[in-house]
Design a binder for these strands. Structure first.
Lengths: 328, 328
DNA sequence: TTCTTGTGTGTAACCGGTTACATGTTTTTT
DNA sequence: AAAAAACATGTAACCGGTTACACACAAGAA
C-alpha cells in the first residue's frame, strides 16, 4: 500500500499539497492538482482511514446494538441502517447485547476506544445518565429511553388499541393478549393499549394475559395452556409478529382454525407475516423507514446539524392478512 | 478522555513505561507497575484503539460480507461469528452485498483503508485472483470459491442426494426440485445432487425443476404453476428452507395437504423450520458451528497460526419435521 | 576485581494522515 | 507605485499509541 508520502514524491510536491487535493481544501494550482491526481492514479493510492481517524477523532463508523440479530425484526432494521450508512460512506458495526447491560456497556467502551462516531441502540436497560456520561451521539430505536435521548419509534399504545379495536370490530367477543417481556417499554405500552380496550368489558379476565417473552416456542406452549383452559377465546392480540407465529403454531397444533375459530393479530409487520399461511394480520410498523430515519438522524447529529424533532414517532397501520375473520 | 501521557504524568513515569505495563512486555519494576495501574484506575484510562491500530496496522475488526442480512440464514451465521469475535476482543462489521460484485469490491477497498484484519464472505462473484491480489486474510463461508481460498461449507451434493433419497424412502413417486439461483455454487451442487438421484427414474421430467431464486413469494408462485400443471407430484425438495416456506405457502393456498398429499423437504435447518406448522423437514446444516468455525479459522489466520484443513466441510443431517410423510 | 548479564526506565522515531503557520509570488485595490 | 488581498506551496507539529535504542544500575560469573 502506498502512502501519501509516496504520492508526494511521485508528484514532486509536499504531503500537504497532496492532502489538499485529497480533501479539496486550501489553494492548489490546477496543474499541480492534475500532477497529484495522476500520481494517485498511478500508485492506486487510497488514503489510510486509520491515520485520518486518529487526527480527526472520528472513524466514519457507527455501531448498532440490538438484543439479538436472530430476531427477524432486527435484520430488517439493520438492513435499512446499513443502506443509509453505505450511501454516506459510513460503516456499520453490529453488536448483540442479549438485553444484557454488561454487554452493552462493554460495547460502549470499545466504541469509544475506536472513535466510533455514534450508536443506534435498542435497549431497555441503559439509563439516560449513563448514556449522557458517555457523550457520544446516540439514537434509541424501537424503545425510547427518555425525552433527553433522541429516538425513533412508533405509537405502540395507540397501535395496540387499534389492533384490539379491529378484533372487536370483526366480532371477537373474548380477546386475549400475549405480551412481550415486562420492562421492555414497547411491550408495556402495547399491553397498556390492550388493557385500556378490554378492562371494562364484562368478559375481561386477567388470565387472558400471558407472557410470551419474545420467544416463539415459549409462546406456543403458553398459548396452548391458555386456549385449553379458556376455550371461548376467539381473538388474540400478540405483542409482536414473532410471538404471533407461536400462537399460530399452537392453534394449528390444537386443531383450532385460524381465522374461523380464532382471530389473530400481531404487531410489527415483519416480512415473515406474508410468508406464513394464513398470512398474519398485523399492526405494521414502517420498519425500513424506521431504520432509515434513525440512521439519518444519527448522521445529522454527528455532522452537528440541528435535529428538529429529536423524538420521532411513526404511526403503525393495520395490515390485514388472513389470520383475522373477514369483516362483512 | 485521558491519554497515555496523562497517565505517565500522573504516575511520574514515561509513556514507554505505561505502554509496557499496558501490554505486559519488557521489564517493569513491581512498584512502578502498581503506580501506573493506580494512575490508570484513577483517570479511568482506556487506550486509544485507533492510535494503536495505526502503529500495529491491525484493527481488531473483521468484516462479514453477506448477500442480504434479511435472508434468515445469515443472521444465524452472523450471530455465531459475532459471539466468537466478542470473546476474542474483535469487532464485527456487517456488509450487505446484494450479490453485487461492485458492492463487494467497494467494501474491500474500505476494509483495507480501515486496516480490517480479515473478512468472512458469502459470495458467488469474486474470483480467487481478485481476492489474492487484495492480500487480506479471508474465509469464504457457505460457498467455496476455490481450493486456494480457505472455506467453511457443507457437503451440499451429498446432502441433496440424501434429501431426495429420504423422499423416495417415504414413498414419494414423483419428486420436484425448487432450485436456488444459477451460478450460486451450493444451489448448483444441490441441484446436481437432486439430478443424480432422479435422472434415471422413468418418471423424471425436466419440468419438475423450477427456479425459486431464494425468494419466497416467487417460489410460491412458481410452485403453484408447477403443481397445477403436474398434479401427480408428491414430493418436493426445496433448495433451501426459505424457499420451502414458499412451497408450503403455495400448497396451503391450493388446498394441497402437507404431508398427506405432498411431502416437502428443505435444506439449511434455519430456526424458522420449527416455527411453521407443519414444521419443515430439512437437511440441517450445523449453522452456528459453521459461523463459529469460520470465525475461529479466520482468527487463526490473522494470528498467523497454521490452519490445518483450510477447507472445512461439515456434514448436513436429516432433521425430520412434519412436512414429510411418516415412514412406517 | 572486572566482565557479563539481567533489570528498569527514558528518549525519540515511527505509524500516515491533517493543518497551523511561514514564506513567496501574483493579482487586485487604492 | 505602494499596500492589501488572494494564491500556492512547504515545513513541522500534532493525533495517541508502540518500540528500538541508549543508558544506568545491580547481581552473578570469571
Amino acid at each position: 500500500m502506498s502512502t501519501i508520502k509516496d504520492v508526494a514524491n511521485e508528484a514532486n510536491v509536499s504531503v500537504a499539497t497532496v492532502s489538499r487535493v485529497l480533501n479539496n481544501n486550501g489553494y492548489v494550482n490546477e496543474d499541480t492538482r492534475k500532477k497529484v491526481l495522476k500520481a494517485i492514479e498511478k500508485l492506486d493510492y487510497k488514503p489510510n482511514a486509520v491515520a485520518r481517524s486518529l487526527f480527526k477523532k472520528q472513524s466514519k463508523t457507527i455501531a448498532l446494538i440490538v438484543p439479538d440479530i436472530k430476531n427477524p425484526f432486527f435484520p430488517e432494521i439493520a438492513r435499512a441502517i446499513e443502506d443509509v450508512l453505505n450511501n454516506n460512506d459510513y460503516t456499520l458495526i453490529l453488536c448483540n447485547s442479549d438485553e444484557h447491560e454488561d454487554k452493552e456497556k462493554k460495547y460502549f467502551d470499545v466504541m469509544k476506544q475506536k472513535y466510533v462516531d455514534g450508536v443506534i441502540i435498542v435497549t431497555s436497560t441503559l439509563t439516560p445518565n449513563y448514556i449522557e456520561k458517555n457523550n457520544i451521539p446516540i439514537v434509541s430505536l424501537d424503545r425510547p429511553i427518555h425525552q433527553s435521548i433522541p429516538s425513533v419509534s412508533v405509537n405502540n399504545y395507540e397501535g395496540a388499541k387499534e389492533a384490539v379495536q379491529y378484533l372487536k370490530k370483526i366480532g371477537c367477543k373474548k380477546i386475549a393478549h400475549v405480551r412481550g417481556p415486562v420492562s421492555v417499554i414497547n411491550a408495556d405500552e402495547r399491553y397498556k393499549g390492550y388493557l385500556s380496550e378490554v378492562c371494562n368489558e364484562p368478559w375481561f379476565n386477567k388470565d387472558y394475559i400471558i407472557n410470551g417473552n419474545y420467544n416463539v416456542l415459549e409462546t406456543a406452549k403458553a398459548t396452548m395452556v391458555l386456549l385449553s383452559k379458556h376455550r371461548d377465546i376467539d381473538g388474540i392480540f400478540a405483542g409482536n409478529d414473532y410471538m404471533a407465529l407461536g400462537v399460530l403454531k399452537a392453534a394449528t397444533q390444537m386443531g383450532i382454525r385460524i381465522p374461523q375459530d380464532l382471530s389473530l393479530i400481531g404487531f410489527d409487520g415483519i416480512q415473515l407475516c406474508e410468508l406464513t399461511s394464513p398470512e398474519i394480520t398485523t399492526m405494521a410498523q414502517p420498519i425500513y423507514e424506521l431504520g432509515e430515519s434513525a440512521a439519518k438522524l444519527l448522521l445529522d447529529m454527528i455532522e452537528g446539524k440541528a435535529v428538529n424533532p429529536a423524538q420521532q414517532e411513526f404511526k403503525v397501520s393495520l395490515k390485514i392478512g388472513q389470520s383475522t375473520k373477514v369483516l362483512r
